[in-house]
Structure formats: structure tokens, C-alpha cells
Design a protein around this nucleic acid. Sequence first.
DNA 1: GCTTTGTAGATTGTCAACAATCTGCAACAT
DNA 2: ATGTTGCAGATTGTTGACAATCTACAAAGC
Lengths: 245, 245
Amino acid sequence: MTKTAPKGPPSALELLRSQSLTTLVKQELERRILAGDILPGDKLNEADVAAELRVSRGPVREAFRALEQAGLVRTEKNRGVFVRQVSLAEADEIYEVRAGLDELIGRLAAERATPADIAELRELVGQMRQAGQAQDVDAYYPLNIRFHDRLAQLAGNGTLLAAYRRLINELHLYRRRTLARGQDAFPTSTSQHAEIVEALAARDATLAGELLYQHAVKSRSRLHEALEREDNLPPPALVREVSIP
Amino acid sequence: MTKTAPKGPPSALELLRSQSLTTLVKQELERRILAGDILPGDKLNEADVAAELRVSRGPVREAFRALEQAGLVRTEKNRGVFVRQVSLAEADEIYEVRAGLDELIGRLAAERATPADIAELRELVGQMRQAGQAQDVDAYYPLNIRFHDRLAQLAGNGTLLAAYRRLINELHLYRRRTLARGQDAFPTSTSQHAEIVEALAARDATLAGELLYQHAVKSRSRLHEALEREDNLPPPALVREVSIP
DNA sequence: GCTTTGTAGATTGTCAACAATCTGCAACAT
DNA sequence: ATGTTGCAGATTGTTGACAATCTACAAAGC
């Protein structure tokens, strides 16, 4: 070594050494969108964002393109970028794909999960049961997210994990939009979670996949019920589609 | 209407009216990468690309960020962007996910395909059989791509279609890299394709899903054979992983 | 001979200015 | 009163210039 020893935490200088401003801006906007600080439909003004983050418009625009490709914002030429609004129909599509991925996750996780992983999952299920009994939705919701994300990690496939997280992010947008984050939020499925973990512990890949698939389908069913309900109240056409050529 | 009638084809002016330069640059680069004009590992120089496409570096950089998020290029800070190299291990991951998506595609397509769709698929299978008998790989390969993409469209789920196409693009990068585009290329599976179409025609969702899953798994097996072969020739560790936090 | 240091060129990261487009409102004509 | 036309302000799209960083090669020191 030459002269100076590195400080303890990753210093701000060290961070700027490896990350570009574009990346930082993207991460910050992504965080705000997923946290609900910025709501679906909101307009993101280049100059305002740049001013608030103390950078010029260049990095902001680059971050916008990345977020667009990630499905978090939508761009209208000469009009600006808006936080994406996920319609009910789109959310339905996403749930459908999520069910397929979850089935795969179940199969793979059953083969690859270690006893320590199983123990961790059981612990999570325990916490969820507790939050469920207390009807504490604010505690239950993030636990549910963590549980399923952990499963996706255990599948041991980075591509699968990335695809899964992308879908979860988009579903997050749907919940933010409707304010009714009630789909996966309500603790109706504590026993299902326990069953899933036991299937993993028994190394039963087919069963674990089947259970996770059904679990996702059930969430989708709750969405459909919401769809029915909503179809009666407002003028029936608020759903707009984005076509992929 | 006010004064002028629109011309026949979409004029260049009309095109620039709706598309930004960033979008055009992105599409052009995507085309070149997938067509093999630019190979995995190649460096993309901002100034060169900008000069060749007659734009400034701004739109080029924005296009780079979009392509990065799309998984087609990789960026190293202060060093530039490179066409992504998909390793064998990554290709293996992608095949695994693709199998899961294909299973879902089969289930959904079986429910939603019209008789006209079935006829179109039968026509495609016929052409593939023909190219297969003639051992014409250059004709067979794009037909195979078209067949599976058509299936993905028939599933009637835009989210699923987008996810599927992204994986196919990444697999394309793997094939470009190894020059051995032999995985799905060789016409070993003409009969499988016919079976799939018949399952769709019979509206047997479970069977169609199962057949497509097995079809993808078989492609993956051929990849594993290639993996075994390659493991013996070069020093055993050329595979690098990208970790997702 | 090998390592280290320094410098030159090229390339990327960032910024500020300019041009084009859109939105809203007011003035005008019908 | 209604619809059209024409600005004025604001916002996005694009460009060129400047600053920071990296790579490569050559010179100096051990």
C-alpha cells in the first residue's frame, strides 16, 4: 500500500468514483417512485429534478431513458415523462406472468434451498402470521414482499430474479395508482405460505411450484373481483392499452 | 381538415414528428446488434456512432442507457459501453426462464388461438419441415424464431410477450458470441412443433404447456452438452457472473 | 532489466446555451 | 356567443464546449 488507508463506510467520494450521476439519479427516482413519493400519472420535469438533485439536465434525461425501459415511466415526445399508470388490464397481465414465474421459482427453490434458507423462511412466515392476527397491514405487506423476494433469490437464477422483480415493481405502481393496495396486502394467505415452505423443506419441486402458481392465481382472482366492482362505479372505459408491435 | 392531405408512406418528416433521435438511434443500434453487424464484446464509441448517424453525442448516450437496461450492452464507467457478452452460465439461466414462460405461453395460447391462427402455425411448421429436410439451417433458424414469437403473440398478454422477446434477444447475443448458433438452429424438432400445434388445435392447455416446456428444456439440454464440451478445451474458468444485489 | 513516474492523446462525464415544440390565453372575426 | 388566430411563456430536444478520467508509451530511478 502507498499512504492512506480507506475509511470505514463507503465515502461519498468513493461512491462517485464508481457510479455516474446518471446512475445516482436513476436510483433516486426509482426509490421515490416505488416509495410512493411520486405517484403514477405525475409529471417529471427535467429542470426541476435537475435543480433539486443539483445536476444538469443531461444525466436526468439519461436516467429517464433507463427508467422508461424499466417500465417505471412513460415518455411523450415534446410533452415530458410521466410516472407510469398501470391499468387494471395491465395488472391482470402482470399477475398472469407472475404466476408462471412463481411456479418456476417454486420448482427451482425446492431443489436448491438449504436448511438455513428453510429456517429463515419459517421465521418470516411466523412474523407474517403474527402481523396477520393483529390485522396490521402495514407490517404484513412488506413481509409478504420480502418472503416472495427471498424465494425468488433461492431459485438461484439471476435472470429469473431480475424478471420477477421487474414485475413486482410494476405491480407496485398499480397499487399506488388505485390507492387500494389490497391485493396481496390482506393476510388471507398465511396458511398458504406455510404450505409452500413445507413443500420446499420436503424437496417436492412439483408441489412447491403448483402451490406458488395457485397462490399467484389467487391474488389475481382478488384482482378480478376488484375489476368487477370497479366496472360498475365509474364510466366503464378508463383502461388504456399500450400495444407492442 | 385544413389544407394538405397526407402522403402515402410515412414521410421522413412525419417520422421525426413522433420519434425522437434517441429512439431512432436506439432502434438502429438494436437492429445492428441483433443482426450481428456489431458483435458481443465490441466497444461502442460515442463519437463514432454519433458521427456515423449524423447526430450529436446526447441522443447516443440516451440510447445507450436504454440499451443497457434492455440487456443488450454493458457500461463501464469512464471506459465506455460494450455489446454484452452472454456467458454459457447466463445462457443456461435464460433457457431456464424461457422454459417457464413457454409453458405459460402454451397454456394461454391453447385457450386463445383462433382457427386462423392454427392454420398459420401449421403453415409455418410445414415450411420448417421443408427447410429441415433440405438441411437448410439459414432458412430454418428464422422460421423457428417466427414460430415461437407467433405463439408468444397468441398468448394475448403484452407483458408476457415483452418478457419473452427480451430473453430471446439475450439468447441471440449468446449465439452471436459463440458463433455456434447451433442450439435451436438444427432442425431436430420438427415433429415437436407439429405436436404443439395439434395440442393448441385440441384446446388442451395443459398438454400444450407441457410440450412447450419440454421443448425448451430440450434446447437447454443441447446447451449443456455444449457446456460439457467447452469445459474441456479452454482453462475451465472463463465464465463471469453479474450479481444482482 | 524491471519497476515507477510522468506526460500526451483519446474518450467519457457533465454542463450550459440554442432551437423546436407545445400550452394557454387573449384578441379578433364571424 | 362561438370559433379561430396569433402571440408569450414554459418545456423539451439537440448541440457543442469544457472538465475529468483512462490508456499507452516513453523516460527516469532502483
